[in-house]
Amino acid sequence: MQGLDDMTNRGAALKAIVAYSAPLEFNMQAAGWIAVVSHWLIERFPDSGLAAEWAALSSVELGLPLETPSQLKRTFAEQKIDERLRWLAGLPTKAALRAMAMPQEVNKESAETGRREVKLSLTSRAVVDPARIEALRELSSPEFDLTKLIRLCEEMNLAFATESYLSMAMLTRAIVDHVPPIFGKNTFAEVASNYGGATLKRELTNLNTTLRNIADLHLHSQIRRKEVLPTITQVDASNSLDVLLAEIIIKLSGDR
């Protein structure tokens, strides 16, 4: 991968000076390395989210400019460099999988081979735990048919695997609008306000406010001169969604 060796060598050189470098010098070099790699990722892998992943890794620094770093602080800095070097080592595989999964690449391959279908070749973690989907599938309710809910969860995993983050936002909105009758309510706002204790209410409120607003933003905004696509950070509601699905399973299992 062109440029990767240079990015890695810069990190290795930074690691070599951890043991004796002054904080000001070290912090400037660390910030420079992180910035150079970030710029390289943006140019080499545009719209992939890899630069955002790199930026989200732990910061590398030795403390305030005039302080004398302890051995423990130097060790921590070295560990943070190692973390980023491991990330770079895994970049070729990560980039290849992401390229195969990105919607534009999937559609481009289909067009080039003259097919009228798309072919997915990818491996991805599940944003909705398969155990939750299986638990929903095993439920038998005389009042509610869970077929659509299960399908929405399955499509959420497909959207995540193909980095279809607009679809993830919309699917989250669809799920929260679909389930209120299970809790005896007409709207999800009523569910969030009246169901469970304080912690549960906080997670459900997150689905009803923050994530609903994000979905509305992408569903209803009109075309503009400049658009910026959402990242996984913006649309990921997996924690709150898992809490909601767990409560549905408890509710329909007759345990509450």
Rank of each mutant, 00 (worst) to 15 (best):
A135Q: 11
V118N: 07
T8W: 12
V179H: 03
A174F: 02
P230F: 00
E78W: 04
P130K: 10
Y165R: 10
A55P: 02
N186G: 14
T162I: 02
V106F: 02
A12G: 00
R84D: 04
A215S: 15
A161P: 02
S124H: 09
A135T: 11
L139E: 11
E227W: 10
E105C: 10
E78N: 12
T233H: 14
A30P: 04
D242G: 13
V106N: 01
A35D: 09
R10T: 09
S253V: 04
W87S: 05
S48L: 11
K15C: 03
L122W: 04
G196N: 05
W33K: 00
A96W: 13
V60H: 05
Y20L: 03
V18C: 14
P69E: 09
L204N: 01
I150Y: 03
I249M: 09
S48G: 08
T187P: 00
T199N: 08
Y195Q: 04
T68E: 09
H220P: 01
Y20W: 14
L245Q: 02
C153W: 01
R44V: 02
A192N: 07
G3R: 02
M156T: 05
K201P: 05
S240E: 10
K80E: 08
I150V: 13
L41G: 07
G254N: 11
Y165F: 15
A237F: 09
V179W: 02
K148T: 03
L57W: 00
Q234I: 09
N239I: 13
E43N: 13
K251S: 11
R116C: 04
H218A: 01
F26S: 08
T75P: 00
I81H: 00
E61M: 07
V37K: 00
I81P: 01
L64E: 15
A56P: 02
I223M: 10
R10F: 15
D255Q: 15
E67I: 03
Q71K: 10
